Structures are given as C-alpha cells and as structure tokens.
Amino acid sequence: MPDMISFIDLKAQRERLKDQIDAAVIKVLDEGRYILGPEVSELETRLAEFAGAGQALSCANGTDAILIPLMAWGIGPGDAVFVPAFTFASTAEVVVLAGASPVFVDIDPDTYNMCPESLAAAIASVTEAGELTPKAVIAVDLFGQPANYPALAPIAREAGLKLVSDCAQAYGSTLDGQASLAWADALTVSFYPAKPLGGYGDGGAVLCKDEVLYAAMKSVRVHGEGTARYEYARIGLNSRLDTIQAAILLAKLSVFGDEIQMRQRVADRYRAGFGNAVKVPHVISGAQSTWAQYTIEVERRDDFRAHLAEQGVPTAIYYPIPLHLHKPYASYPVAPGGLPVTEAAAHRVLSLPMHPDMSDADVDQVIAAVAGWEN
C-alpha cells in the first residue's frame, strides 16, 4: 500500500516562509505591542489593496467577520437573512446569534454556490408570508470560487437587501477580474490555518466600501466603543486580531498571489488527468478560484473513498449534512420547493488533496488513484 500523502501540507509552506515568519514574530515579541499593534493596521491596508477595493477591518475569527456587519446594520429579531444550507455552520449561526432568522436557499448543481432562482423564490415567499422582514443575503464563495454575483446582486438590490460575500474560503478569488466586493456590501474572510490564506490560529477580516458601515463595524469589533475610551455607542464584541497573527499573515500575503497560481496548477493537472472518471469542479465563467478545496462528485462515495485510501490518497467531505437538516436549524424556513440540489450534492461530493506545495509525484498519485476507479 502506498504511503498516505498530505491532504493539506502546512509544514511545507512553513519551511518556505520560515525565516520571514520567524523574523516577523520576533519583531512583535521584542516590541511587545500584542493588541492592535502596527502589524494589524498594515495587514488591513494590504488586504484591501490585494482585493483592489474598500477598507479592511481585522477581527478574531471568520465567524465574527460575518456577524460584525449584521450587528452594524442592526439586523435582529423579526428579520430574515437568506443563506445557503450547503456550507459551514458559521454562515447560518451568525444570523441566529444576531437574533434574526436564517432562510435556507438551494444551490447551483455545478458550482455548489447559491442558486439565484431559489433566492428570488425564497425572498418572494418570505415577503408574502409577512412574518419576517427580509434584510440581507449571505452568499458563500464555496470551495474557493465566487458565487454568481452578477445574478445575485440585482435580486438583492431589487428587494432592498444587504449582500454579504462569505469569502472565508475564497479571499483572493475574482470574477471578471474583480473581488466579490464589487457586488457585495461586505466581504468576509477567515484566516483559519487550513484556509488558502491561513494564520497559525484563528483570525478573520471584513472588507467594505461604505465609510459609515466601516465606522460602525470598527465600533462593534471592540465592545461597541464610541468616540472616547470607555464610552459605548452600541452592543459589541471582543473581536480583535492578535498582532502576532497579523505579522504571520503579512508574511503569507506576500506570496499569496503566487500560491493561488500554484493551486491552479494542481487543479489543471487534476482536470486533465481525471478524464471522465468523476465529475470535476465547474468554475463559473470569468472566475479565478483560490481552490480552497478540489471537490468532485462521484457515485458510491464510500467505496470510492476506500479505494483512494488504499492508494494512499486521503479525502474529506464538505458537507455531509446540509445545515437545514441539523436539529438546531430544522425549524427555520427553506426556499419554496425545498433544497433538492443541496441534499443530493451532500451524498456525492468528495474533496481531494489540494495545497500549493503539492509535488508532481503526489499529484500523479492522486490522478492514478482516481483514474483507476471502476465505477
């Protein structure tokens, strides 16, 4: 049996950037400015520059990054926020934490991102029922590629809704050369270690173009602070990004553009090598994915996973149970007609090893294992 390759190899990246990261961390330790030190503001500037728009506000984690704009907008009890069910818990969790109601929307069968038609139907249904007030849409840029914002944004605008790009897995992705902030009111980022731009602990950020929103979010980030210390303008959070994490992320951001292309190289080789053995990812026209995950579809998933394991290829399933089928979320509304595409995909998707430091030998091992599958 071949040796098991790495699903995500953070150690290899660490070796490439070791000197740069070590120097950055030691600088923070020597200076002792651990909370909102200069590296934090520098990172925020660099994040906005890399995205090509807006201002960035760092925070403690990617979950808070989504919650902060909801709180800044005053979204709460009696409000509806439209979210996909095929995503990590944070997307819907923050809606409930804000006191509002998530409304689950179906996905596109090829990109796994929010389906515009299902969104429009969900908004119309909630509006007609009159029990909740539609306030916002959170579209997830799943597996590294942007959602169909040219289709989603007009639907949100027509209904008077705020639009959030949950870009936790896809910071650095573009659509027609632009970050999703070109269409969204806010773009949220996670720096969880396994993300394409990951730190060595939790961290997050939210980007926006509205100065008023930025000021409100900055207040929310630090206990709702007002214009003076120990003066509070609103209910807030304790959600500051550590200076050490900011220093690490600055080092990683310096090579992030190159790493996106390194991931693209792996994705291109996979697509060419797999043939018709599995359903390979479909990237929306005009998009650059960050390839947070390389997610395929296959029948007989359990058998396929066992086959790959025998060939030394690890796999992961994102996400085996859609959110609307979990007990804490089962009472919340879903789009008219239910979520059939979401529920079908959850039984067939499978993610393969993907990281910028994959060797040719590892890529070859994955290709041989997948191509050798007899469905």
Rank of each mutant, 00 (worst) to 15 (best):
P281Y: 10
A309I: 09
A272G: 03
V280K: 13
R305L: 05
M262L: 15
P281Q: 03
N276H: 08
V280A: 09
T295W: 12
R305N: 00
R269N: 03
L308R: 06
G275F: 13
R271D: 03
N276A: 10
D303Y: 09
D303K: 14
I284S: 01
D302I: 08
G286R: 12
G257Q: 15
V280Y: 10
S289R: 06
D303L: 12
Q293A: 09
G257M: 14
T290Y: 11
V278L: 12
R271A: 04
G273N: 11
V280R: 13
R300G: 02
A292D: 13
S289T: 10
D268S: 14
F274L: 05
P281A: 01
I260D: 02
H307V: 12
A306I: 10
R305P: 00
R263C: 05
Y270K: 11
K279Y: 09
Q264S: 08
R300I: 00
E259T: 15
R271G: 00
R305A: 04
G275M: 11
Q264T: 14
I296G: 01
A292W: 11
A267F: 09
Q288N: 11
D303I: 10
M262Q: 15
V278M: 07
R300A: 13
F304A: 04
H307F: 09
H282F: 13
K279G: 02
Q288K: 07
S289C: 08
A277G: 03
Y270C: 04
Y294N: 01
R263Q: 14
V280F: 04
H282A: 07
Q293P: 00
G275N: 11
A287C: 12
V266L: 09
I260C: 03
E297L: 07
S285N: 13
T295Y: 08
F304T: 06
W291Y: 14
D303T: 08
Q264L: 14
Y270S: 03
S289Y: 09
E299N: 07
H307M: 10
A267L: 05
A272D: 10
R301K: 02
R305T: 01
V266Q: 02
I296W: 09
D258Q: 15
Q288Y: 06
E297A: 05
L308T: 05
Q264D: 12
R269G: 01
V280H: 05
R271W: 07
M262H: 15
K279L: 07
Q261S: 13
G275K: 14
G286H: 10
T295I: 13
S285H: 14
P281T: 04
R301P: 00
W291H: 10
A277M: 13
Y270T: 07
S289H: 04
Q288F: 08
E299R: 06
M262F: 15
A306F: 04
A277D: 06
V278T: 06
A287Q: 04
V278N: 01
F304L: 03
A272L: 11
A306R: 14
G273Y: 12
T295G: 02
M262S: 13
E259N: 15
H282E: 04
R271Q: 09
T290F: 07
G286V: 12
I284E: 05
N276S: 11
H307T: 05
H282K: 14
R305S: 02
